[in-house]
Design a protein around this nucleic acid. Structure first.
Lengths: 362, 362
DNA sequence: CTGATAAATTGAAACTGTTCCATCTGTTCC
DNA sequence: GGAACAGATGGAACAGTTTCAATTTATCAG
């Protein structure tokens, strides 16, 4: 139906120029390329679906810029594992892409992906790049966002709702008797992380507790970020008795720092963390956590996408907007608040709240 | 030079049959397909390098069977991160493949990869699948194995030598005064893991210490494997005073179990682990480790492969056989052996070696 | 300002790989 | 024995890419 000849006559150029334009070759006049892009878009041209040239069975896992370090909290690697499992049903392959790296000037994301003969795309976009998902939604290229959600009805996504369980996690702390509950949230402003901050605030508000800005901290999502917050908060004049960390790596670092400073968890300090896979079971103590299953998110995204590509007509598969629930798992890092709040200086010195030093840390 | 028409006349069939054969379509006589495969091989046909059809800029990260869980000890994910960095120089893309899933009967691995328009391949093969690397080496498809090494001169690889540092690690324990040193090695029989076992044995032999089979254990490379070995060894009648674990996840589990059983590290037990990335810095205490940089292995493999593909003539890039060294990093989990060897039952009960119970664990 | 030269841009045609459709062959079922 | 059918194959049409030569545009010395 639509091919390079159609585009050529529509744009008033030769097929050679169409091919060069679509493949981002040098030595094409930018204005000409633009005309070709417009003509291609107007006839809904797709190379990946070109009947006479082998239909593509490759989907992409696409990041806006640099690919996120795969060991970043375990989320990316668990999700990738799920994706690789999810494509088996229809025997698709997975290509990992950085969208920005190869985007030519004036080229749309849909055109870029089609140039690489990508049949569908799993998007991993963050706050600044939500527009990528919206741009792709209008095109003929099926796409789905993992771990973020959208108002727009034509953006497909699968994500986890963590607000309810974040509220329950903090409620759990309040039920145990905690009143000074801190928050260590990392500075990514997607729905996923706003959920966690909102859940924390919900619980405090519902229990008539004030939101104390000195207890709410944005940290980097790393062991160092979590450890640093422990040091800072626990040495402050009014330390919290519990902390909710919204990231697994930060939780690991926090627990480690507590061991270093001889802060007993949960006797001196209760900690609730966040987990994307099995991390909570590998620390000591095993941490109480809001758990989301990143492997499942990747699996379901990949399975839906490949099913949709394999059954283009199937109306039931046209759109996918799924919100799964996290779950709260109580483990060993939460307990009653200490009778006497615990303050520990960065060198491990334990201080009573009246200022008397009671014990030298290791 | 070589195209489907060449193959067709060589095999005495039509170009349609050649295309069908090479693309694994049904309704081709197996004998005909075989003839086509042979003709294609004899003229060195490659679809990925077909001049008139767009040269492929996709390399594969290929696993023999199921793709290894990406969070497996952090090795796979760190390596993948390195690969993704390594392909940027020449703007290649990375496709993750399971070779077995799509291999058609009678099809060679080279043919499979060419069918998927893969220009080059990074192989992650284990003991049973070393022949895959050797099969691919003979073909025109550039390939490189990560983290294993080969005698054959035409197999490219990049790996880490860990025997020397494993020996040094155990020597370090011996220098500290340890004599009963256990080994927890996981049951993968590639050069990589034989190195670690051999290094352990080297050090014992050089110091005139007997190899004690009750101290050498094959475990699964997981936190559970490491934890289980701690429980088993420390409750035995003659517990070791030090253990060398050859896997990061096992080391994590071992350290956790020590904290659970109140086994003080290193006062009661010294532990040396293995690390592929930054794991050693995220445990408490930070563990002394033989360290290999999985990210670097992936990076160098991908950079070499993409450079070779971009400069086909360059003789300096024709082959790559690189052995990097691990390094031994002394951290907090190694120290003098205890004056009184420490025996701890699975329930945490601490027992003197004459059998008297001295302390109840938590 | 002019002509020479180089560089950028473009189209026609050649070329490559895939699929449609018709044909041929052997088998099965009445 | 003949109709119906499925498997296998080739010819031809087709889609997309690149080569090569022609054309246009830019640059610059005199």
């Amino acid at each position: 139906m639509s091919n390079v000849r159609t585009i050529a006559s529509k744009a008033g150029v030769s097929i050679a120029t169409v091919s060069r334009s679509l493949n981002n070759h040098p030595n094409v006049d930018p204005a000409t390329r633009q005309r070709v892009f417009e003509a291609a878009a107007s006839v809904g041209y797709s190379k990946a679906n070109s009947v006479r040239h082998g239909v593509s069975t490759v989907i992409a896992l696409a990041y806006p810029g640099d690919v996120v370090r795969a060991d970043y909290g375990g989320f990316e690697s668990a999700m990738l594992a799920g994706i690789l499992r999810g494509v088996n049903e229809h025997r698709f392959d997975v290509c990992v892409l950085s969208l920005r790296r190869d985007l030519a000037p004036g080229e749309s994301y849909a055109r870029l992906l089609d140039r690489k003969k990508i049949a569908g795309v799993i998007l991993r976009v963050f706050e600044d790049n939500r527009d990528i998902a919206e741009q792709l939604a209008g095109t003929g290229l099926p796409s789905i966002v993992v771990a973020d959600r959208y108002e727009a009805p034509d953006v497909n996504y699968i994500c986890c709702e963590s607000r309810v369980d974040s509220r329950r996690a903090v409620q759990h702390l309040i039920d145990l008797g905690h009143r000074r509950i801190a928050l260590g949230v990392h500075a990514v402003r997607d729905t996923d992380h706003m959920d966690r901050r909102n859940g924390y605030e919900d619980a405090l508000r519902e229990n008539g507790l004030a939101l104390d800005p000195t207890l709410m901290h944005e940290i980097v999502a790393s062991p160092e970020g979590g450890a640093g917050l422990i040091t800072r908060l626990m040495s402050s004049s009014e330390p919290p008795t519990a902390i909710y960390f919204t990231d697994p790596m930060a939780t690991i670092g926090a627990l480690r720092r507590c061991l270093e400073l001889s802060i007993r968890v949960p006797q001196d300090l209760s900690i609730i963390g966040f987990d994307d896979s099995d991390t909570r079971r590998h620390t000591y103590p095993s941490f109480t956590a809001v758990v989301q299953d990143a492997e499942m998110l990747g699996f379901e995204a990949a399975r839906w996408l490949t099913r949709r590509l394999s059954n283009p007509g199937e109306t039931a598969l046209q759109s996918m907007q799924v919100v799964r629930q996290t779950r709260l798992e109580i483990n060993q890092t939460t307990g009653r608040p200490p009778a006497e709040p615990c303050r520990v200086l960065p060198d491990g010195t334990r201080v009573q709240l009246n200022g008397v030093q009671v014990m030298q840390g290791k």
